[in-house]
Write a protein that binds this DNA or RNA. Sequence first.
DNA 1: GCTGAAAATACGGCGAC
DNA 2: GTCGCCGTATTTTCAGC
Lengths: 151, 151
Amino acid sequence: MLDTTDKKLLTLLQTDAKKTNKELSNILGLSVTAVYERIRKLERNGVIDRYVALVNRDKVRKGFSVFCHIKLAQHSRDYIRVFEAKVTKLKEVLECYHVSGDYDYILKIVVDDMDTYREFMINKLTTIEHIGSTHSVFTIGEVKNTTIVEV
Amino acid sequence: MLDTTDKKLLTLLQTDAKKTNKELSNILGLSVTAVYERIRKLERNGVIDRYVALVNRDKVRKGFSVFCHIKLAQHSRDYIRVFEAKVTKLKEVLECYHVSGDYDYILKIVVDDMDTYREFMINKLTTIEHIGSTHSVFTIGEVKNTTIVEV
DNA sequence: GCTGAAAATACGGCGAC
DNA sequence: GTCGCCGTATTTTCAGC
């Protein structure tokens, strides 16, 4: 379904979505039209989901990242549904995964600093029903952070 | 440094970077040029780091996400430097954070499936020197995944 | 911050390979 | 599926105020 050119194109667009079709055509050795058609197809097929701006978190005082492990009190379908719906609404929670192991969910939380994290925990996260326990892991350094999946 | 308009603009661009300045100007109640100038400034100041295409991982068979906790064998400066340099090079590792707690690093790894994860662990990750131990947490569902930080 | 105009690019159709 | 060329429409970009 995706040939080598498509894969290269995807990596390029995941690296820099502002590249013009002309620049891409030079890199890939294709015509502008061919690049245009391929991108259209990748967008139509849903392979490219969307285009976004990435913000430098340190520049907007959002440099405090925390991973929070959560156990639910019970694992009924309703408890899961309610928890997932409410946690999704929290803007501080950038990512939430249902996982297997010692706990049920991993949340990636981004806030200003430790004080705002404390506020977030008390006034937002732990007000969600059915949470059994939480465990916070604080990041002290970002070694790598990319959105590029190489296919 | 950032006024309310800038913040709205950042949220809009983090949601959809393909919006034209004209569309943005309508939403924000500004002229096209004012929007242009504000975006230029956000880019120059480094608040906007870059623009990227986001790929639907399920469409490219990269739906298998794993969090891997890593302890180093020792915590000398050289060990840390070597580990971080090598782990950054691995394309399967999308994110790597230095953390405080029971382990030293959290890695977010995205691969095809369990088989490729096994291959990755054997042939790539665990060939890095100075790793003391690893612990993998497998995701069984993605509840939320956004890149938007609301400032 | 605005208006207006120039330059660059995207877009869609065409026939041909 | 790709290419090159054609337009036109849209968008970006940057004067000058």
